[in-house]
Design a protein around this nucleic acid. Sequence first.
DNA 1: AAATATAATTAGATATAGCTAAAAAAATAT
DNA 2: ATATTTTTTTAGCTATATCTAATTATATTT
Lengths: 220, 220
Amino acid sequence: MKLTASEENYLKAIYHLSEGASKSVSTNDIAAEMKTKPASVSDMLRKLGEKGVINYRKYYGVNITQEGKKLALQTIRKHRLWEVFLVEKLNFAWDEVHDVAEELEHIQSPLLIQRLDAFLNYPKFDPHGDPIPDEFGDVKARPRIPISEMEIDQSGQIVAVKDSSAAFLRYMDKVGAYIGARVKILDKVEFDGSVEILVDQKKSIFMSKDVASNILAIQS
Amino acid sequence: MKLTASEENYLKAIYHLSEGASKSVSTNDIAAEMKTKPASVSDMLRKLGEKGVINYRKYYGVNITQEGKKLALQTIRKHRLWEVFLVEKLNFAWDEVHDVAEELEHIQSPLLIQRLDAFLNYPKFDPHGDPIPDEFGDVKARPRIPISEMEIDQSGQIVAVKDSSAAFLRYMDKVGAYIGARVKILDKVEFDGSVEILVDQKKSIFMSKDVASNILAIQS
DNA sequence: AAATATAATTAGATATAGCTAAAAAAATAT
DNA sequence: ATATTTTTTTAGCTATATCTAATTATATTT
């Protein structure tokens, strides 16, 4: 099954939207995600349905098929490998890479991706901390550990909090930490287990062991 | 002036065809080069003419404008930089790179090319020995030297012969040397100036100083 | 100089991918 | 249960890039 760049983009969007919710994905949601109009989406859904990469029933949204999932994961794999390349080899900032990777991901050459993967030393995660599917579409889930358990100089990304009480979220907000933030452990005080972290390469934050235990991160 | 991938390809073809001949380029020649039909070319020429990158007079072929030349050289620059990347970093063979580079050259990101150029250490020639234009479209012509003047372990590409008599070309053919062949100097005998070279990384050839003086190569 | 051959262009298709506006179906509210 | 709102689809149009077939312009022969 071969897809055009546009079809790949739609499929990727459908895959991402599917991951969040358990039910089928709506035309309007896809249009919003793709920044196109619902009418264009309807057209594309018909096409993708005919190609067998989604199950499409008019007026009832879509579900991605196994075949479709595999193809979407291939595109995601390519995207994330290119992001690693751009950041690690070409010194792009991690927030500058998305648009370029969006173009690069559509280059059709299995050999290229295989070689790129090897050149980058088979990275398992992209610069945003997202897992890179292997060539079979399998993704390695990265274990989430509390910031309090990370070592000095280790980097990672905040992905969740254990206690999600409003009070704690207010605290997070106040100090400038948030889900998705990239963090680096600057210092750990052995005496009380308190931690100093650097958020997004600019803001340093002190926190008690209690707080640090409550913030979950993936290591990069 | 922004061009589509297809327009870039046509312009590149027109540029290459212009380089060979002094007169204007014909519709049929472009069609042959691009592997499309003359009808498609006519359409595209009208468009490129309107964009000012070529001078187009119906039934009289085209000449590339200064603006067009600059754009064509930018595309060629991107193509050749990607070829260097593929060969030097991803270990592609030099004859495997063209199709992939053909896709990569259309990625729109000046920053990407700037960074790629730096990452590759500002190469001046691609793996085929062709010069890489700089960001202003200037190309460095590489001096051609006789194989007899190359040093041991130096690599290059055969680009011409001094004596192009039928006898000599028959000899070239017989030993497996040809215009375009990549060569590496394996050994030089000081006593008589004879040379042993490796052709295309597989075939080794012995030749007298007379013969070696007659084959011109560019160094890589 | 007229006839013929070659080359180039136009006219009219097709396919992709987007759009707006109108119509139809489904969901929600009264 | 009907009316209204929201969502989705269809119809029809635009633009790019290709094609074939027909036409027209230029070049070559005789």
